[in-house]
Simulated scan of single mutants.
Amino acid sequence: MKILHVIPSVASVRGGPSQAILQTVKALRSLGVDAEIITTNDNGDDVLDVPLSKLVEYKQVPIQFFPRFSPKINSIREFAFSSQLTAWLWQNAHRYDLLHVHAIFSYASTAAMAIARLHNIPYIVRPLGQLCEWSLQQSARKKQIYLNLIERANLNHSRVLHLTSRQEQQEVSRLGLRVPSFVLPHGLSIPPIIPDARYRLRQQLKVPPDEPVILFLSRLHPKKGLEYLIPALGKLKHHRFTFVLAGNGSPEYTNELQSLVASIGICDRTHFAGFVEGESKNLLMQGSDLFALTSHSENFGLAVLEALAAGLPVIITPGVALASVVEQHKLGYVIPQNISAIANALDDCLNSPQLTKQMGDRARQIIHDKYTWNHIASNLIEIYTAIIEKKNLPHLD
């Protein structure tokens, strides 16, 4: 079985979905699937320093990078146009049994779907939440034109849509697409335990050893609902806490957040940690007391899954697709996206550290049991096999 994954970017700055594809392909290969990735050298405002137009090993995964067209106009740069990627796909896509396309409304993905259609190569699409209501409302006119003129036909000719939550599946069903879908979440690589994480994190933050630490770790973007979370924290000045904002975003939006923190009066309690990965990220996850993500919309919420796996209870909003899992297993709070409700949930957590710890212990056990990458990859192999052999899609456990 030879599978080609296509995605506009695998750069860390592009967040969870771009990192998930690396783990997916690694797990597929460990189970005997000949899986590769093609992508561009996109790295946000920059480009990755990687060899181009040849297969290389990148983070233990075989990938071919192609140069992204990088003009100064941000919207064009974000589209990730690459003529070399197009030419390579046109000449080589037929060598694969199936294409797994990740993302829509981006050149690499659109080109891959169009070429697969023309060559009659089966493909499936993981839209990364871009067909969810909130996402479609952003630059709505452009997306509606793009969807109706180009992407709807590409989606309808795919064999199946790969969605990562029931919530995403429900939202996509309202679009009237003529294509089936299956739900398969992201998996998780469980990092090694840092025995003294709490102590080390508080030393790093220069706060007392018993200081409660509340963590936000995600891209800094208006989608993430920080305009609710930060004012909610401002209502808790009677509590001791340190708030860590980990993630990067545009300089303009980061400046807005810094101004908001100042106006709310919690500058002395807030640390802007910037983008973190590796041990720094693991230390934050394992050393904090509570994770908060009050997003408008998340088709999955990989950072939430990582927090739960680290034993952190979470405060999230209904727009985060993992909300049903959190509610079902009592792994934290799912609260309306308003300042008072968020403040009340935070207050409950800070007032009840023992209950909070019980939630975290339960979260760690459940996530470790159900969300390993090998489990996810095994399910994907069943899907691939059914499509290639033209059989009915299996029921996934």
Score class of each variant (00 low, 15 high):
113 M>Y: 03
110 T>V: 14
94 H>T: 14
89 L>S: 04
119 H>T: 08
85 L>W: 01
113 M>R: 13
106 S>K: 13
101 V>W: 03
120 N>A: 10
108 A>Q: 02
107 Y>A: 12
91 Q>I: 05
99 L>Y: 07
104 I>C: 05
95 R>A: 14
85 L>P: 04
105 F>R: 01
96 Y>E: 07
109 S>Y: 10
112 A>C: 09
113 M>A: 09
86 T>G: 03
112 A>S: 13
84 Q>T: 13
116 A>H: 01
120 N>I: 04
112 A>R: 01
101 V>K: 00
91 Q>W: 06
87 A>P: 00
115 I>C: 09
116 A>W: 00
97 D>R: 05
103 A>S: 14
103 A>H: 15
91 Q>M: 10
112 A>P: 04
86 T>M: 08
102 H>R: 06
83 S>N: 12
118 L>I: 12
117 R>A: 08
104 I>V: 08
115 I>D: 08
105 F>A: 06
114 A>E: 13
90 W>K: 15
104 I>Q: 03
117 R>V: 04
102 H>N: 05
107 Y>V: 04
101 V>G: 02
120 N>F: 05
112 A>F: 01
116 A>G: 07
89 L>R: 00
107 Y>T: 02
118 L>Y: 11
89 L>M: 12
86 T>C: 08
84 Q>R: 13
117 R>P: 04
102 H>I: 07
95 R>T: 15
114 A>F: 11
103 A>M: 11
97 D>S: 13
83 S>V: 13
111 A>M: 13
91 Q>A: 14
118 L>D: 07
120 N>M: 02
81 F>Q: 04
80 A>G: 06
107 Y>G: 03
98 L>R: 05
120 N>Q: 11
112 A>K: 04
88 W>D: 03
81 F>Y: 14
120 N>K: 14
103 A>V: 08
97 D>V: 09
82 S>T: 04
99 L>N: 02
98 L>H: 00
